[in-house]
């Protein structure tokens, strides 16, 4: 398999689609398996604004024509839409509840988690994964995390979110096994908050 060469004006995706996809997946897997852990993006990527490298890398590694994608107002630029359509081939949807992935480029004005698909009691896996680009993964208000993947407790300091975000996350955790899963991205860093994680603010 060879790298896809970008057409005019379109920024390139992974230099090595096979091995880079695997590396990014392992980074997301590590982050999801150990909530709160900061994982560095293991490669170089220059996505179109306003996407950070980590945000775009998660999409390139995991999205394709089988995963409907919802973009928030900030992400929904022509350049981003074209970039993701070209490299991932994923269909864009306007209903957040119909999305397998949601890309949120501005966490501070994001919609409530309940706007997305939480799966069903029988099939809780059929839920939206939110990739949320945040301003920081090191300098926000620290949160105490507990749950699977965490030995005693972990801390995460991400921001900024809407004021109701703690309530949304608590309600999402209460839905378990239903619920959405969050991947937080900032610059070249990743962290994850799966539905199984309990947060204390």
């Amino acid at each position: 398999m060879t790298a896809v060469h970008a057409t005019d004006g379109l920024l390139p995706g992974f230099a090595d689609p096979v091995l880079d996809s695997q590396r990014v997946f392992r980074a997301v897997l590590e982050a999801t398996a150990r909530p709160g852990t900061l994982v560095e993006l293991p490669l170089h990527l220059e996505p179109p604004a306003p996407l950070d490298a980590a945000t775009a890398a998660v999409m390139l590694a995991l999205a394709d024509y089988e995963t409907p994608l919802w973009l928030d107002g900030t992400a929904a630029t022509d350049a981003v839409a074209e970039y993701l359509r070209f490299h991932c081939g994923c269909p864009l949807v306007s209903d957040p509840a119909a999305a397998a992935f949601a890309l949120i480029a501005d966490a501070s004005i994001m919609p409530p988690l309940a706007a997305f698909h939480a799966g069903s009691d029988e099939y809780p896996d059929r839920s939206t994964t939110l990739v949320i680009q945040v301003a920081t993964l090191t300098a926000g208000e620290p949160v105490e995390l507990s749950g699977p993947g965490i030995r005693d407790s972990a801390r995460l300091a991400a921001g900024a979110f809407p004021p109701d975000f703690p309530r949304w996350v608590a309600a999402n955790h209460e839905l378990f096994p239903r619920g959405v899963d969050l991947v937080l991205a900032s610059g070249r860093s990743l962290a994850a908050l799966p539905r199984s994680t309990r947060l204390e603010w």
């Binding site: 096979v18 897997l29 590694a61 995991l62 999205a63 809780p124 896996d125 994964t129 096994p177 899963d181």
Partner: peptide
Amino acid sequence: NFAYLDEQTKRMIRRAILKAVAIPGYQVP
């Protein structure tokens, strides 16, 4: 391909693995 499976198949399996980790013990089809 590297590790035999095509990339589309690997992505599908990877997405299933991430859901499986998020819902410990639940069997993801």
